[in-house]
Design a protein around this nucleic acid. Sequence first.
DNA 1: CTCGCCTGCGCAACCGTTTGCTCTGATTTT
DNA 2: AAAATCAGAGCAAACGGTTGCGCAGGCGAG
Lengths: 338, 338
Amino acid sequence: MASLKDISRQCGVSVATVSKALNNHTDISEGTRERVRKAAKELGYSPNFSARALKTNKTHGIGVLFVDEARSGLTHDYFAGVLDSFKSTVEDKGYDITFINCSKKQPNRMTFLEHVRYHGFDGVVIACIDFGAPEVAELVQSDIPVVTIDHVFNNKIAIMSDNITGMTALTDYCISKGHKKIAYLHGEPSTVTTARLTGFYRATDKKGIVIPDEYVVGTKYRDTVGTYKETLKLLKMKDRPTCILYPDDFAALGGINAIREMGLRIPEDISVAGYDGIKAIIDREPQLTTVLQATDLIGERAAKKLISLIEKPKTTIIEQVVIPGTLKEGRTIADLTK
Amino acid sequence: MASLKDISRQCGVSVATVSKALNNHTDISEGTRERVRKAAKELGYSPNFSARALKTNKTHGIGVLFVDEARSGLTHDYFAGVLDSFKSTVEDKGYDITFINCSKKQPNRMTFLEHVRYHGFDGVVIACIDFGAPEVAELVQSDIPVVTIDHVFNNKIAIMSDNITGMTALTDYCISKGHKKIAYLHGEPSTVTTARLTGFYRATDKKGIVIPDEYVVGTKYRDTVGTYKETLKLLKMKDRPTCILYPDDFAALGGINAIREMGLRIPEDISVAGYDGIKAIIDREPQLTTVLQATDLIGERAAKKLISLIEKPKTTIIEQVVIPGTLKEGRTIADLTK
DNA sequence: CTCGCCTGCGCAACCGTTTGCTCTGATTTT
DNA sequence: AAAATCAGAGCAAACGGTTGCGCAGGCGAG
């Protein structure tokens, strides 16, 4: 690989001059600059990231921590959407993204923080992870600029999908269609789940609707087996609900299959709704009623906030940005008012 | 950040000794090694990736080029699956992955190859992209170790999902259920499409089944609008097919909706099948018959091949690895033989 | 004519690591 | 006892690029 030295030799100027010429410093004459540029092109010069980073202590690199229980969050539609949007936003601004290695199999693996320091990432975005893990806390509490998604840490920027309002809207919608016996299979305990439960009860409380405890059950996110089983239980109750809300669109499929298996129709016999707005699910008839999370906006805001924090740490406001979702009315909630 | 120099000062030994001690060179006494390790821990030493990379000319970094028409391939279930598996495999072996910047919005953006050289990636994996783009060709034909997925370049390693056999199996299955009038809405021209068309005709030819040309139509991948329209056309034909095969599971949804809209039942009135095996689709009743692509295996093989090419360039065989898919029998193909 | 300023470029240090070679003192071999 | 070997540690250059400072020459102004 051609280096600055090669160009300097070719042009008969110093390495410093070459560097300045290529970086558009003002103290280089137009003539020299052109000669240098030409030589660079001829020699196939390629700047060296490592050398530059070593000297400037800036990498223009962002570390990404998207970890699912199973593996990375890549196969998780919601997070894949967020990441996709995040990626394209930071790339537009000249940042590159690298995954923070989360392999457990490595002989002497680094902690997340160690890995970040090693690479010298300018900032980090975290999502879809066990936020309680000590390793995550260590990273978040370091001096590295960090933005978290869907989880709030003290004194750190967080981008939050508005789960409270979203769930309230969804529940309100069900109530407005005349449903009173609404069951809610929610996800495992987490920031997100808590918010949605809050939203759920906020809606029912406001209308004075009392939801029996056995209607509200925790199941795993993105798991059809759990929802299948719990749905069967709900359907076999003496006082069966008229409407079942699921942790997410995918998990809803388990419920839908259970309902069909019992010979019941959706929405005539039983109404259902999901959460997320996964295209592969809501595009299919009967269209699932759900709450569409604005993954594009979430990723974009996360990216912009993080870059701002990196480039203007003083003036960047540390805050929780809440991104609203939108109720997506499908055809799986029956109108009982007619 | 503490550096080797800090440790050397603390321990009263040279920087070289510290480096060797931490890297387990054999010419350092156990005593010194221990003292160094202790000091490193105390000072919170973190190795510097850039310095190391600069010196050794090795980054242990892999560049990833997963570009969709829309944006990255992250929201594409198939590629997300492949990438996820790829990621975890290389991470287990101590490699990190960074996306090759494909933003078009950057003022003076680098070409893919320039970006790869800049970062000094040890290798590159390419998928889900317009393989005809000159920039991609430039990258592939460089001296950088490269593995492509689902596309063959001359003299380069390629990991291929076995689309020929997969499609043959699917078509055979339809034929075995007594279907003769099989329509195939395939994707836009590409390596993958060509392979599947080959597979399709191989199956029909073998059984001496003649497929009218108007039964075979190109539509976009992962697009429900196109398949919706084309399905309506097929259904309105005088001699309507009994079975329609779609470019992929997601695109199949458009067809399914069109069929339902015409008041037809699946599979009683018309049979359908997809391709890919997207969980959010095939887990729903009636389960879509499809071909499950082995994303896990594809990603893993791509990773292992690439790492082998990086670490043992001499002995690594340049070949096309073909990964079979599996027919997933759902409930959307009617049995006409009974 | 002299002074000061501006323009254009080079000097040299430095970023943190790695590694081949050298040096020293001790131990083993003959 | 002299020579050869060896373990353990340091020296110093090198990787490629950046940047504050200094310096020379040309110019206009006083």
